[in-house]
Design a binder for these strands. Structure first.
Lengths: 224, 224
DNA sequence: TCCGTTATTTTGAGTAGTCAAAATTGATTT
DNA sequence: AAATCAATTTTGACTACTCAAAATAACGGA
């Protein structure tokens, strides 16, 4: 069994890799920032992970998960996201607060408990924020999603994923009806104004900046 | 927030105190045994707990929880036992396996999550083994229970608590119908044979040794 | 090519928790 | 009172993780 610390290093590494092209190595500096430790700490730890065969690492060459490291990382991610969904669906916590809870619980739930949760939720493929949940074998459902600024004006879309774990942003999104499952019409995408205008079910138009709009990922709706 | 280690020291201390008269101090040696650490380790740690005001300690005089230590310990115990009940009732784990799970989860569940669990279970007073769950303010329901060897022959009783957390014993008890809520008639209590004979609902008599019988705690049934 | 900037690594030190083994204490026996 | 024994405490060392600060490497520009 890996320590919580090790699990966190692997998880952050996986997310950073996915954020990049998933192919090129992650710099120890990026990793350190992501984990909120000093660069030196990350370097030292990464050497240990390499010793354990969880990552490939060459001095000043960045870090990459090995196959075994990736497997372990996917397992942590699976625990994190299943726990999030469980907290929302079964315990009724708000989606804006479950990320923090899951940060701790992900290191504490056993395989046995996780299986019960998985079954109870019907082997779900996505967590409350629309992030994909790795299945028991570590496979991720993949969807080609558009971010709002990528949409065409007039397009009808459904919110599929909200890519920001901060409670503030999640509460904002919820307040505006921008939660997974909601349908929207893109009224305008204005590069110059740095803004996207939407219309939801309710009818009242909503204008949000590009930075926020980029975090809302949607699937096109076969307009009907 | 206390570390998992500290929480474990406090919890074991509380249980050892309850096991004794609850008044006299616990020796560092007993504590060490209970926690499965070496005596020296326990001594060092206890000094730290005393520094933090969680225990009273004098060299070679044993340890006792202060009021604040006791509060913290009861909180850990509450988390442990609520989690146990939750795992049995909501996730459907077997009562023989929840103790181990709770040993880890008790350090990971937040107050927020705990409150949801507490509510969902209806603010229960006892865990799956019949152990009392401290309420939110740390108060324990107290019941005067008899152990099987203390019962009179012919007495009708109800199993209220099974005082052994080992999966083996719990599976044995479950297999014999000796779970909280079951009613029994005491057929014989034989000091010399070191055995107690019972008859359950089913009718077939059951003989168990004193050591095992002491772990089964019962309430007398107003015979009707 | 040399210089300066920036990222990265190394080093020394600190905290929390642990063990093994030696030293101490207190109690018991003689 | 002295010797012995068991429990307890002290000590030195180790692991895992962390930071601060110094050393090193890499890269781009003059």
């Amino acid at each position: 069994m890996h320590s919580s610390t090790t699990e966190n290093y692997l998880k952050h590494l996986l997310l950073l890799q996915q954020q990049q092209d998933d192919e090129s190595p992650v710099s120890t500096g990026k990793l350190a920032t992501s984990l909120e430790v000093t660069p030196g700490t990350a370097t030292v730890m990464v050497k240990g992970l390499a010793e354990s065969g969880l990552v490939d690492y060459e001095s000043r060459g960045g870090v990459r998960l090995t196959r075994s490291g990736q497997k372990a990382a996917l397992d942590v991610l699976r625990r994190h996201r299943l726990v999030e969904l469980f907290l929302v669906r079964v315990l009724g916590l708000d989606w804006s607060e479950v990320h923090e809870e899951a940060e701790i619980l992900e290191h504490a739930v056993s395989e046995k408990v996780l299986q019960k949760i998985d079954l109870m939720l019907g082997k779900p493929a996505f967590d409350p924020h629309g992030d994909p949940i790795p299945d028991a074998r570590g496979r991720l459902a993949d969807r080609r999603l558009l971010s709002l600024p990528e949409c065409k004006e007039g397009q009808r879309v459904e919110v599929s994923r909200v890519d920001d774990q901060s409670p503030q942003f999640l509460r904002f999104a919820e307040g505006r009806g921008l939660t997974p499952g909601a349908s929207l019409t893109i009224e305008a995408v204005d590069e110059v104004a740095d803004a996207v205008t939407l219309r939801g079910k309710g009818g009242e138009p909503l204008v949000i900046g590009f930075a926020a709009a980029k975090k809302i990922l949607v699937s096109p709706l076969s307009d009907g």
